[in-house]
Simulated scan of single mutants.
Amino acid sequence: MLFTACKKDKNKFLVVGEISNMPGKSVLLEEMDLVSNEIKVLDSASVDNKGHFELSGSGAEPGLYRLHFAGNQFILLSVFKENIKISGDWNALENYAVSGSPASESLKGFFANVRRHITDIQTMTLIMDSMRVRGNDSLLQKASVDMGNINLQLTQYIEHYADTTTFIPNALFSVQILNPSVEKPFLDGFATSLPKRFPNSQTVKNFVARYNKGITGGAEENESGPTDGAMAPEIAASTPDGKAVTLSSFKGKYVLVDFWASWCNPCRKENPNVVAAYKMFKDKNFAILGVSLDQDKEKWKMAIAQDGLEWTQISDLKGWESLAARDYNVNSIPANFLVDPTGKIIAHDLRGPDLENMLQEVLK
C-alpha cells in the first residue's frame, strides 16, 4: 500500500529499511547537492525495535541522497522516482543490501571497490612505516613504487567509473573524489563530455557551469590563485564566538591555512592527520588557521568539537562563496597552504605523512 501511495507523486520515492541491532531511535533522509555540496534534510523517521523505518522524498531529476544514522553512520543512495528496500546489520553496515534502485546498487559496488583499494593503501603505508623505522632503504624504495601503482589503479578505476556509469549522480559524485590539481586534464575532458552523455539534465548543466567558472575564472577572479613562493593573500573572518581574526596576526610563525568544512567527508577523514601534526609541532613556532566553507554555524561548531580541532577556526559562513576560498582559488577541499614566518607560501595541499615530513624539515 505504501508503494502504491508513493506513485501518486510522479517525482516521489520511498525508502523502506530494516537494520538489525541499530542503537539509534531515528534516521534522517538527506539530499546531497552535487553542485553546491550542501546537505538538506528531507525526512526523518522513528526506528522500531526491529530496526524498521520508512522515509520518502521527491526530486525532479536523479539525485544523491543519504540515510543518516546515529554516530554519523551513512548509507548513500542514488535515486530517481523509485521504491527502495534497504536491509543490513548495524555491526557490518557496509555490507547492507539494496534493491529497487539500479543506480544505488551500482554506487554500492563502486564503494566496495574503492574500499578495497584504500585497504591496500593503508596496509602498504604500515609496511613503509616499518621499513623507515628499520632503515631498510632498498625495500622502502620498492614499496614506494608499489604504493604508487596502487594509487594509480585507484585513480584509474574512479576515472573509468565516472566516464562510463549511466547514472548522473554516480558520475558527479565519483569524479569529485579526484584531486583537481593533479587530474585536471581528465576533469577537463569529463566536463566537456558530460553534457553529451546527459543532454537533458539541469544538474549536469549547473555542474559544468560551476566547474568552468572554478577552473577558468573570470575577469574579476584570480585565475591561478597563489603559488609556492608568492605572498599569502590576507584572510579575515570570525571565530565561532564572533572574534575577528586575520592571517597576518600569525606573522612570525609557520602557519598552515587549512580549508575544510563539516559536510566534507574527505576533510573529516584527513582531520586526524592534521590533529596529529598540530600536537607534534604546536610548541615549535607552528600554528594552524582553519578556514571553514560551512554555512551552518552549529554544524561547523559541532564538527570542531567532534574532531578535536584545538587551533583557531574562522569562517564567513558563505560556503563556496567564501572570500578566502576565492582569493586562494580553492575549488575543492580539503586544501591547505603552508605559510612561512614572513608570510610567504612555501608548500600547498600537504596530506598525511607529507604534512608531517614538511614540518619536520622546516621546523628542525
Rank of each mutant, 00 (worst) to 15 (best):
D163L: 04
K196W: 00
L178Y: 07
A143K: 11
L172M: 13
T203N: 12
Q156F: 03
P185W: 04
P199S: 03
N206I: 03
T164L: 02
G148E: 08
V208K: 11
V145I: 14
Y157T: 02
A209W: 02
N200G: 13
M147G: 08
V204P: 11
T192W: 10
L187I: 12
F167P: 03
L194E: 06
Y161L: 07
S193E: 10
K205T: 05
M147V: 02
G189D: 08
T155F: 08
L152K: 15
Y211G: 12
T166V: 13
L187F: 10
F167A: 10
N149P: 10
N151W: 08
V204S: 06
P199D: 04
S144G: 15
P185L: 09
F198C: 07
T166Y: 09
Q153V: 03
F190D: 03
Y161S: 00
T166K: 14
S144V: 04
P169I: 10
I150M: 13
E159C: 04
L152M: 14
F190Q: 05
L172F: 10
T165N: 06
G189K: 12
K205C: 01
A162S: 12
V204Y: 04
L187T: 05
N151E: 14
Q176H: 04
G148P: 12
Q176V: 04
I150N: 05
F207T: 08
N170W: 00
Q202D: 12
D188M: 13
A191P: 07
T166C: 11
F167L: 09
L194C: 10
F198I: 05
V175C: 01
I177T: 06
Q153M: 14
V145Q: 14
P195G: 00
Q202V: 11
F198A: 05
K196C: 01
N151M: 15
S174V: 01
T155A: 15
V204L: 11
N170H: 00
P169T: 11
P195I: 00
T203Q: 13
T155G: 14
A191M: 06
N206F: 06
K205M: 05
P199H: 01
S201Q: 02
L194N: 05
F198M: 06
P185D: 08
Q153Y: 09
S201V: 03
I168P: 12
S201H: 02
A171D: 06
V145W: 08
F190G: 02
P199Q: 03
I150Y: 05
V145N: 12
D146L: 15
F186M: 04
N149L: 15
K184E: 10
S181P: 00
A191C: 07
N151D: 12
N179W: 00
N151C: 13
T192K: 15
K184S: 04
P169N: 12
P199W: 02
F167C: 07
